[in-house]
Nucleic acid binder design. Structure first.
Lengths: 349, 349
DNA sequence: GTGAAAGCGCTAACAA
DNA sequence: TTGTTAGCGCTTTCAC
């Protein structure tokens, strides 16, 4: 059995209260008592119980972090950012991975409440529109500081750190249009998701602003996996034609699309233009000088944690929502292609 | 204030014990009481306190997970594997990221002890040989089920899930030698680390077995970052010559090396052979058909969690150590190059 | 500067 | 099947 505070008190010849004061660095303790207590602590290798403390203070040091896909680099970087800030504040991170699964999410939320967490940082599972309405109730019932990351909940307005994806798509699309593109494919993920909808809007708005009609079949709908983007791109190449430009709506979708392009040896930017999301190590490594929207996940995590901590401390200022504006990193892959790859014939590998 | 068990008892007109029984699914409760309790729970939105339960049971449901670099895909996948298994067992994951920093690691360990965790899964910080000795004491003093992942501690023998990196390097190097290579550069990370040492041994043993003397300057020592591998490769190319083959000892080192090769437009496998670690999405995407050692991080995480749970349950079988044997994924990049890039002149970009 | 004692919310042994 | 009660280890008031 681990040593308890009374073991220390007995050993040091003082009361429980004094030991507690030493542990909590209360100034009102004589140096002599303090010394005695400290050496007893060392001797018995005493480590206070988070449970006893939590119970008696009726408060925890835990924040909950719920992500939908921990092995996605975006989220592991978000966690990195959160964890570094939380650490500095003496808050500990209880982590849950939902795998985009609503039941898992609900279970995680429940468990976190058992831990009486101080606050919650969550990227909610998406794709179930029915469920979206329940979030609002659920979150409000929890009566807990909550910060969302990257995904807002439909028809609601929770505090959080978001990225203006609509603006990003608008910017990307406009840039391409300015470069002479009209035939622009969009790897659009699952269009039932808010994520996708906002971005598609941005894409369409840019066309509208330029007074051009986009080809509806250029919006390649599927899900958010690499595989889906890969298949859709391949299908487009084999059965239709190759547009002059591709847009990857997320890093996963970009990867799938790039994979297909590479498989057919379609060169960027000589044969097609490409603009994606997120700077990935692989781009640099391969000298793929892609023009990109930069989305700094670590920073988003840090900001989310900062926001949460402010809320925990009641420092809820006017701005409890960060909406990060997209910046384009221009590297040339937006240019109108020199050659038209449609003159070649493509057959399944 | 959250509702407590006594609120429920009062509301349901039963005793605390009965409520507790219902919560813990004890069978010895009449249907009638059960119903009453359950509806009271629902009505008051009662959620038991993990602290009170932990204190009274003197036990937690938490396992600690300590990784040195959460944004490294290897570790986020390990966490993915751990978390999926832990979840199924009703264990919650308290996560710490040490950033390869010993102080942070010590702090994490301390906090985890405050939570009276059931067990610990850790990839210890490396690089400080002095400190390595302390681990043994520290871990043994904690008297806690501990499972290491990927890194063992020097001169010790902790349970864990390891990968036989020495065998991997032996296999890689032998394969290259069989293909006619003699001039093989090894991106070796920091040779003070156990990780690096074992692998260098494998490399050297393969040469010895083939009765060839390796060039000492082909062991490129630095640290484990992409940048370090990039600089070392670049330096080798500019100041010495280009070997016929490169080996990346970790995925990070491979990336740095590939980046430099790509910068000089040195083609794989036409001009140099390359063998790396870990299948990364980028390889597929870019049709870099690299021959690789496969290291399944998610699986290592799952195995680690399985091992830990067995230890927690006292099912410590004979094998509390997994040493995964490397498998080579052969894709052609091991071949002896067709052209000799040394005939070109290389200048800094 | 120090100590006694009540209480945090729950479990579990015991009694009924 | 149910209830009573004594803790679990700590914090915190209050009195000294």
């Amino acid at each position: 059995m681990a040593a308890t505070i009374s073991d220390i008190a007995r050993k040091a010849g003082v009361s429980l209260a004094t030991v507690s004061r030493v542990i909590n660095k209360s100034p009102a303790v004589s140096d002599k008592s303090k010394k005695k207590v400290e050496s007893a602590i060392k001797e018995l290798n005493y480590i206070p119980s988070a449970y006893a403390r939590g119970l008696s203070r009726n408060q925890s040091n835990i924040i909950g972090v719920i992500v939908p896909e921990i092995s996605n680099p975006f989220f592991s970087e978000v966690i990195d950012g959160i964890s570094s800030v939380a650490d500095r504040q003496g808050l500990n991170v209880l982590l849950f991975n939902t795998d985009e699964n609503i039941e898992k999410e609900a279970r995680a939320m429940r468990i976190l409440q058992e831990y009486r967490i101080r606050g919650l940082i969550i990227t909610p599972v998406t794709g179930n529109n029915e469920y979206d309405k329940k979030y609002v109730e659920m979150f409000e019932n929890m009566n807990l500081p909550i910060v969302l990351v990257d995904r807002n909940i439909k028809n609601s307005n929770f505090d959080g750190v978001y990225f203006d994806d609509k603006a990003a798509l608008y910017k990307i699309t406009s840039l391409l249009i300015e470069n002479g593109h009209k035939d622009i494919a969009l790897l659009a993920g699952n269009p039932n998701h808010v994520i996708a909808q906002k971005r598609i809007e941005g894409y369409q708005d840019a066309f509208e602003a330029a007074d051009i009609k986009p080809y509806p079949q250029n919006i390649l709908a599927g899900d958010f996996t690499i595989e889906s983007a890969y298949q859709l791109t391949k299908h487009l190449i084999l059965t239709h034609r190759i547009p002059t430009a591709f847009i990857g709506m997320t890093n996963m979708l970009s990867m799938g699309c790039l994979k297909a392009l590479s498989e057919f040896n379609i060169a960027i930017p000589e044969e097609v233009a490409f603009i994606g999301y997120d700077r990935l190590a692989m781009h640099d490594i391969l000298h793929l000088n892609l023009t990109l929207v930069e989305k700094d996940a670590v920073d988003m995590g840090r900001k989310a944690a900062g926001l949460l901590i402010d809320k925990i401390n009641g420092k809820s200022t006017s701005s409890n929502r960060f909406i990060l504006m997209p910046e384009l990193l221009m590297r040339g892959s937006e240019k109108y292609p020199l050659r038209n790859p449609n003159e070649r014939t493509f057959t399944e590998k």
